[in-house]
Design a protein around this nucleic acid. Structure first.
Lengths: 150, 150
DNA sequence: AGTTAACATTTAAGTTACTTAAATATCAGG
DNA sequence: CCTGATATTTAAGTAACTTAAATGTTAACT
């Protein structure tokens, strides 16, 4: 009984997921959808905003890409003036990437727009539903993280 | 009060979303993560599996890319033997794309794996929670679709 | 029939985001 | 001072996109 219902749930999820993904990506934050910056680029800026200056290896670990890929990504961000490269005085192999003022402003702007979007969408369901939804999301995140270690 | 809580929800969502996306993408269906086929390619095969033979314009509309992009995508799928091109006898401008037997088998295999993954993850929460979650997801989808038209 | 506008698809050229493999530079330890 | 590990970049190649322009049909006027 319970088992059957998980199966049905999996079926419906498979059907709904693509529609949702498409829907959300359609209304991504303006600066992203307007092509001023790409999603991976924004995720890096966001990381730097929260974590301060980070070295290339750390960035590529967080983003789960090779350092070679990160070189290109950062290169474009530097060219746009959103981040700066800085040598580590203690170890000259290391290059620290830090947000510029322009980059920090962009992060704030995009985050704000994203929040607005979430508010607009999820403001249409009840507070109880929101609470339920977030709770489940958090549990799923924990389950995913636990499996990662194993 | 209710307003404040939406704000808080938006904040938490912004924080949790990237972690979830990373978690799910890490355990995408094997055939996809093993590099046998890419996500856009799978979505096209899935579309063809459900909708039968479709013309290029229809495919690019569903996928929300240009027809030029679709030409390249389909080209690679043809080269791998997952789909076939067929002229429409009634209108020679039109080229219908249809799944090959090999393509259909791949879709079935990947869908099965994806379902297994969902079962493994969502099997760890209660049936009631699953029902709640799915309900909210469906409402969100409808909200997104309604906004699309406007 | 003959021109033209609209439609369906492809080609060409360029960008971003990746990969692997190899090069370069620096550090740290014997 | 040599060697191995570390940190980053370069080089070459692929997939997935974009815009702009070319090619082939079809359908509708005149």
């Amino acid at each position: 009984m319970g088992n059957l219902s998980v199966l049905k749930f999996a079926d419906e999820m498979s059907r709904v997921m693509p529609q949702l993904l498409r829907g959300f990506s359609r209304r991504q934050a303006d600066e992203i959808s307007k092509g001023k910056i790409t999603l991976p680029q924004f995720l890096i800026l966001d990381l730097l905003d929260k974590g301060g200056a980070l070295k290339m290896t750390a960035l590529s670990l967080f983003m789960e890409v090779t350092t070679a890929a990160m070189t290109g990504l950062v290169e474009r961000l530097v060219k746009c003036g959103y981040v700066k490269r800085a040598f580590d005085p203690g170890d000259r192999r290391i290059i620290k990437i830090e947000l510029s003022k322009k980059g920090a402003e962009l992060v704030r702007k995009i985050s704000q727009q994203r929040r607005q979007m979430i508010i607009k969408i999820f403001g249409q369901i009840s507070e109880e539903e929101r609470a339920n939804y977030l709770n489940i999301l958090l549990r799923i995140r924990d389950i995913l993280n636990k499996e990662k270690e194993a």
